[in-house]
C-alpha cells in the first residue's frame, strides 16, 4: 500500500489544506502552524543534509579512486570538508561553541569562506558588463529598450548624471516609480496567479511528478 502514490498524495493534500485553513484561524495550534512547519522543514533538511554530504563526498571519493582527471581537486574538497568538521568539533570542545571569536573555526570562516564568497560575488562586476555588451550588440527592439533604460538609470544614480542634466536623476526617479513599478506589479500579479495554479495542481494531485 505504501508503495503506491496514494498515501503520499493524500499527505500532500492534507498538509496543504491544513496550511490554507490555518491562515484564517489565529487560535492555537493553527496560528503557529507556519512557524512550526518551517521548523519542521529545517529538521527534515538537517537529516537530509547527510544524504547531500553522502552524494557530494561519495562522488569525489569515486573520482579519487578512479584517478579522474581532476582527482587532486577532489582531494582538496574532501580535505577541506573533513578539516572544517574536525576543527568544528575540537573548537566546540575547547570553547563550548565552535562559533567563539577565538576559535579556528571562526578563522576558517573569516579567512577562507568570506573572501572566497565575496570574490565570487564581485565577479558580477565583470559579468554585468559583458551582459550589457551583449544586449548592446543584439540590435532588436526589446534589447535596445532594455539597454537604453539601463544606461539612463545608471547615469541618473551617479553624480555624473546630475552634471549631464539636472533632469536626469528626476527622470530616473520617474522611471523607477511609474513604468518600472507598473510592470513589476503586472508581473507580480501574474506570479501570484501562477503560484496559485501550481499550488492547486499539486494539492489536488493533478501534478504528481515529484513522486516516483
Amino acid at each position: 500500500m505504501l508503495k503506491g502514490k496514494g498515501i503520499p498524495i493524500f499527505i500532500t493534500f492534507l498538509t496543504g489544506m491544513i496550511m490554507i485553513i490555518s491562515f484564517f484561524i489565529p487560535h492555537k495550534p493553527f496560528g503557529d502552524i507556519e512557524k512550526i512547519s518551517l521548523t519542521w522543514y529545517s529538521i527534515i533538511a538537517g537529516f537530509t543534509m547527510l544524504l547531500g554530504v553522502d552524494s557530494l563526498i561519495g562522488m569525489h571519493f569515486r573520482k579519487l579512486k578512479r584517478k579522474d582527471e581532476n582527482w587532486f581537486f577532489s582531494l582538496v574538497l574532501i580535505i577541506g570538508f573533513t578539516a572544517t568538521v574536525v576543527v568544528g568539533i575540537i573548537e566546540t570542545v575547547r570553547f563550548g561553541t565552535a562559533f567563539d571569536e577565538r576559535s579556528y573555526f571562526t578563522y576558517i570562516y573569516n579567512y577562507f569562506i568570506v573572501p572566497l564568497q565575496s570574490t565570487m560575488f564581485s565577479l558580477l562586476a565583470f559579468f554585468i558588463a559583458s551582459a550589457a555588451y551583449r544586449a548592446f550588440r543584439a540590435r532588436n527592439f526589446d534589447a535596445t529598450l532594455l539597454l537604453i533604460t539601463a544606461i539612463i538609470v545608471m547615469l541618473g544614480r551617479v553624480p555624473l548624471g546630475e552634471q549631464i542634466s539636472p533632469y536626469l536623476p528626476k527622470f530616473t526617479e520617474w522611471i523607477m516609480q511609474v513604468p518600472q513599478m507598473a510592470a513589476k506589479r503586472g508581473i507580480g500579479l501574474g506570479i501570484s496567479l501562477g503560484a496559485l495554479g501550481v499550488s492547486i495542481r499539486i494539492i489536488l494531485g493533478i501534478e504528481r511528478s515529484y513522486l516516483s
Binding site: 498538509t15 496550511m19 490554507i20 512547519s37 499550488s199
Partner: peptide, 14 residues
C-alpha cells in the same frame, strides 16, 4: 517529500 511539498504549496496559497 509529500509533507514538505504539501506545506510549501499550502502556505503559498494564502
Amino acid at each position: 517529500i509529500a509533507f514538505v511539498v504539501g506545506a510549501g504549496t499550502g502556505l503559498s496559497v494564502p
